[in-house]
């Protein structure tokens, strides 16, 4: 498979913050049109990876190509082709839904009849037609999440980077969000982070499991389950084979006390 088939190509990506390495050499590639799920415990580097890919943070070293553009060298062009939803789904609360989406469309160069057409499409896609004249600050968390998601789809990005899109939603809203992702254009690629194994199982064709800033696994859910079963049949207690594989890959290292020393773990 050539580079042209890849929507996201990441090579030895590192991101260092003062006092910690958030990403310690991450490499993976996601084909066009695929959905990838980013799993990992808190602090494993999921959000940092998405922020680097979205062009919000610069990598310390390594390369990341998103939608055919280098996120460092061709940052503006890359950002034009990305729809990014950050973890807290920040919005201008004093604006009305329609106004906010118009503003977001304008940032991506949409205007006139094209913008109006895209507005109608995303309002319908995210079922926001009834609240488009409502002030965002007066909406529930679920509606706000949908507004943020609608803004991501507005400029028809090639790649959607979503940080916990179903994180704070109730089951019905989370299902609505999953449906939105399923009904996207087939050419659009999605990489989303989640703590929900169920979301990953239901949506993703590719799984990237991060642990302490490094890639613990990168494969399809079926391959991952098979390889983990083969490697260790006595997997931890879990609700699903995928969850068992996840728990195995992200388990903290076992601390063994050495009785010959003063009790310090070795």
């Amino acid at each position: 498979m050539g580079e042209g088939h890849l929507a996201i190509s990441v090579e030895n990506l590192k991101r260092r913050f003062p006092g910690c390495d958030a990403l310690g050499g991450v490499s993976f590639a996601l084909p066009r049109g695929a959905i990838g799920a980013l799993l990992g415990p808190n602090g494993s580097g999921k959000t940092t990876l998405l922020r680097v890919l979205a062009g919000v943070l610069a990598p310390t070293s390594g390369h990341a190509i998103v939608a055919g553009q280098d996120v460092t060298q061709q940052s503006l062009e890359a950002r034009r082709r990305i729809g990014y939803l950050s973890e807290t789904a920040p919005l201008y609360l004093e604006m009305r839904v329609g106004e906010y989406l118009t503003f977001r469309g304008g940032l991506y160069g949409l205007s006139g009849s094209h913008l109006a057409k895209r507005l109608r499409t995303v309002l319908e896609l995210c079922q926001l037609g009834d609240v488009q004249r409502r002030v965002i600050g007066l909406l529930s968390r679920g509606f706000r999440q949908r507004v943020a998601l609608a803004a991501c789809f507005l400029h028809e990005p090639d790649v959607l980077l979503l940080d916990e899109p179903t994180g704070a939603l109730d089951p019905a809203q989370a299902q609505a969000c999953r449906n939105i992702l399923r009904t996207r254009s087939p050419s659009q690629t999605v990489l989303f982070s989640t703590h929900s194994i169920r979301d990953a199982e239901q949506l993703a064709q590719h799984l990237l499991i991060l642990n302490a800033g490094r890639v613990a696994a990168w494969s399809s859910p079926a391959d991952l389950i098979q390889s983990m079963r083969a490697a260790d049949p006595g997997s931890p207690v879990a609700h699903s084979p995928l969850e068992a594989a996840y728990l195995q890959l992200t388990a903290p290292p076992v601390m063994v006390r050495d009785p010959t020393t003063s009790g310090q773990p070795s």
């Binding site: 922020r51 979205a54 062009g55 919000v56 503006l76 062009e77 950002r79 034009r80 990305i82 990014y84 950050s86 807290t88 920040p90 919005l91 201008y92 609360l93 977001r104 940032l107 991506y108 160069g109 803004a151």
Partner: peptide, 11 residues
């Protein structure tokens, strides 16, 4: 509010 991140992610 974190909206600066939205602006920084835009072109």
């Amino acid at each position: 509010t974190g909206t600066l991140e939205t602006l920084l992610a835009a072109p």
